[in-house]
C-alpha cells in the first residue's frame, strides 16, 4: 500500500504553503480594514477601542493564534522547500535567460517572502510587542459625563500595568477607596473603567493609546540609532518599500496558491489571475497610504 505524506512530500508541503498563504491573505484584509480607521479624523478613541477588542475578544484570539501559526508554518515550509529546490540544481547554468519564460515575482518568492518576514519582525516589535508587553505604554482617558453637570476630575498615572497614585477615582477592586480612605496604588489595564470616588459612578475609561504610538512612530523626529536624523521619515520609507515587496509576493502568490490546490480550469483561471493581481496591487497600496498619510499630514 502506497503511503501518502501530506507533511513530507513535495505536493503535501505545497498544499500547506498554499493554505497558509491564502489564510494570510484573509488576515491581510482584516488587518487592513482595522488600520484604515487611522485615516479617519478623530479616530483616536475608536481605534484604541478597536485595539482593545482585537487583544481581548476570544474569537479574535483564536484567529490571531491561527495567524501566528500560519506565518511560522508558511515561513519554515517555504524555507525548507527553497533549500530542496537549490539542492535540485547543484551545478548552475553558465548562461540562463529566465525572463524568457517566467516572471520576476515567480522566481523570487523566497527572497520576497524573507523580506516580508524581516518586515513582520520589525513591525511586530514596534507595535504588537508594545501593545502586549510594554508596561509604559501611554494611556488615553475617555471621559463620560456620569450625571448632568457632574465634574469628573480624576488623575491616573500614565502607564499600564504599574501601580499608580490615583486621586478622586476608584478603579474596580479598589477596597480602600470603597472604604472611604484615600486610594493608593492600583493596577491599570487596557479598557479599565474609572470611577468617581465620591459619587461612586463610572466617569471614564482608560485605553492603551496605540493610536498615539502609531502617530508618534511615523512622525518621530528622533535620530535612528542616535545617528540618522528624522527616523519617522525612514520608518515611512521602510514601510512603503516593504509593501512593495509584499505586492510582488502576492502578484505571483495569490494565483499560484489556487494552482497548487489543484484549482486550474480554462473557465476560472483567468478570473483568479486577474483578482490576484488586483489584490496584490490594492491591499499593499492601501496599507502603504497609512504611514504616508500620517507622516506627511498635520
Amino acid at each position: 500500500m502506497a503511503k501518502s505524506a501530506l507533511l513530507k512530500s513535495s505536493i503535501g508541503k505545497k498544499y500547506w504553503m498554499a493554505l497558509t498563504g491564502l489564510f494570510l491573505c484573509l488576515f491581510l484584509v482584516g488587518h487592513l480594514a482595522g488600520n484604515l480607521q487611522l485615516l479617519m479624523p478623530n479616530s483616536q478613541l475608536q481605534f484604541n477601542q478597536y485595539a482593545l477588542f482585537m487583544t481581548s475578544n476570544p474569537a479574535v484570539k483564536i484567529l490571531s493564534y491561527l495567524t501566528y501559526i500560519s506565518i511560522l508554518f508558511h515561513a519554515i515550509d517555504g524555507i525548507l522547500l527553497t533549500i530542496q529546490n537549490k539542492k535540485a540544481r547543484p551545478v548552475a547554468y553558465a548562461k540562463s535567460n529566465p525572463s524568457a519564460n517566467s516572471s520576476f515575482a515567480s522566481r523570487n518568492m523566497a527572497v520576497l517572502g524573507t523580506l516580508v518576514l524581516v518586515f513582520l519582525a520589525t513591525h511586530m516589535t514596534n507595535f504588537w510587542a508594545k501593545m502586549h508587553f510594554d508596561k509604559s505604554m501611554p494611556l488615553m482617558t475617555q471621559t463620560i459625563e456620569a450625571a448632568p453637570g457632574m465634574k469628573s476630575e480624576y488623575y491616573v498615572g500614565r502607564s499600564v500595568g504599574q501601580y499608580y497614585q490615583v486621586d478622586q477615582v476608584k478603579l474596580p477592586g479598589d477596597k480602600e477607596a470603597e472604604a472611604g480612605t484615600p486610594p493608593k496604588q492600583l493596577e491599570v489595564k487596557n479598557g479599565t473603567d474609572v470611577y468617581n470616588v465620591q459619587a461612586n459612578v463610572k466617569v471614564g475609561e482608560l485605553y492603551k493609546d496605540l493610536h498615539k504610538i502609531t502617530f508618534d512612530f511615523f512622525k518621530s523626529k528622533n535620530k535612528l540609532f542616535g545617528v540618522i536624523p528624522n527616523e519617522g521619515l525612514l520608518f515611512t520609507i521602510f514601510y512603503v518599500l516593504s509593501m512593495l515587496v509584499l505586492a510582488y509576493h502576492l502578484w505571483h502568490g495569490f494565483q499560484s496558491a489556487f494552482q497548487t490546490l489543484g484549482l486550474n480550469s480554462p473557465k476560472w483561471t483567468p478570473t483568479i489571475k486577474f483578482l490576484g493581481k488586483a489584490f496584490a496591487v490594492l491591499v499593499p497600496l492601501l496599507f502603504a497610504i497609512i504611514p504616508l498619510y500620517i507622516h506627511f499630514t498635520k
Binding site: 505545497k14 522547500l81 530542496q84 529546490n85 519564460n101 522566481r107 505571483h252 499560484s256 494552482q259 497548487t260
Partner: peptide, 9 residues
C-alpha cells in the same frame, strides 16, 4: 527533483 513554485517556465 525540486518543488514546483508555479513559475510556468
Amino acid at each position: 527533483f525540486g518543488n514546483c513554485t508555479n513559475t510556468g517556465a
